[in-house]
Computed example of a mutant assay.
Amino acid sequence: MTAVSLISAKSYEIAALRQSLEELLEPLGGMRAFVKPRDRVLLKPNLLTAGRPGKECITRPELVYCVAQLVKEAGGEPFLGDSPAFGSAKGVAKNNGYLPLTEELNLPIVEFRGQRYATASENFNHLRLSKEAMNADVVINLPKVKSHMQLTLTLGTKNLFGCVPGKMKAWWHLEAGKDTQRFGEMLVETARAIAPQLTIIDGIIGHQGNGPSGGEPRFLGVLGASADVFALDRAFVDILQVDPALIPTLVASQRLGVCPELQEIDFPLLSPSALQVSDWKLPDALIPIDFGLPRVLRSTFKHFYIRFIKEPLNAYAQK
Rank of each mutant, 00 (worst) to 15 (best):
R113F: 01
N106G: 14
G97K: 08
Q150L: 02
F112N: 02
A170E: 06
T119H: 12
G156Q: 07
A120G: 14
S147H: 00
E122M: 11
Q69A: 06
P100M: 11
L70S: 08
G162L: 00
N96Y: 03
N95A: 14
G97S: 10
G75F: 00
T154L: 06
A89K: 07
K144C: 04
L101S: 08
M168V: 13
K131S: 09
S130T: 01
Y117C: 10
S147C: 07
E132P: 02
P84I: 06
T102E: 02
T102L: 12
L153N: 04
A118N: 08
A85Q: 02
E111L: 07
E103S: 14
K131M: 14
R113G: 06
A176I: 09
N159C: 10
M134A: 09
L99C: 05
M168F: 11
A176H: 15
G87A: 10
L101F: 14
H126K: 15
S147N: 04
M134S: 06
L107M: 08
S130F: 03
G156F: 03
A74F: 01
A133N: 02
G87E: 05
F79V: 15
G97Q: 06
L99I: 05
A176W: 11
M168P: 03
K144A: 03
F161D: 00
S88E: 11
L70A: 14
W171Q: 11
L174E: 13
V145Y: 01
L129M: 12
K131H: 07
V138D: 00
L153E: 04
T152P: 09
L99F: 08
V145G: 05
L105Y: 04
Y117G: 09
V164G: 04
A93I: 07
V139Y: 04
N159M: 09
N96P: 01
F86G: 05
L155H: 09
E175M: 13
G76W: 01
K169S: 03
G114L: 01
T119F: 14
S88V: 09
F161T: 06
S130Q: 05
K72P: 08
L142M: 15
T152L: 04
P84N: 12
K146Q: 00
L99N: 00
V164M: 06
V139H: 04
L153R: 04
T154E: 06
M134E: 03
G91F: 09
F161W: 08
M168L: 11
E175D: 14
F86L: 15
S83T: 12
E132Q: 13
L142A: 12
M168E: 15
R128M: 10
H126I: 09
V164P: 04
R128V: 15
W171A: 09
E77Q: 13
P100V: 12
G76H: 01
P165S: 00
F86W: 04
F79P: 05
E73M: 14
A133W: 00
K158S: 05
F112H: 08
I140H: 01
N106I: 10
N123H: 11
L174Y: 15
Y117I: 13
L153P: 02
A120P: 07
Q69L: 14
G76N: 02
D82A: 10
P84W: 00
Q115V: 12
F79N: 05
F79I: 15
V145I: 13
G114K: 00
N125E: 08
L70N: 02
D137S: 15
E132F: 05
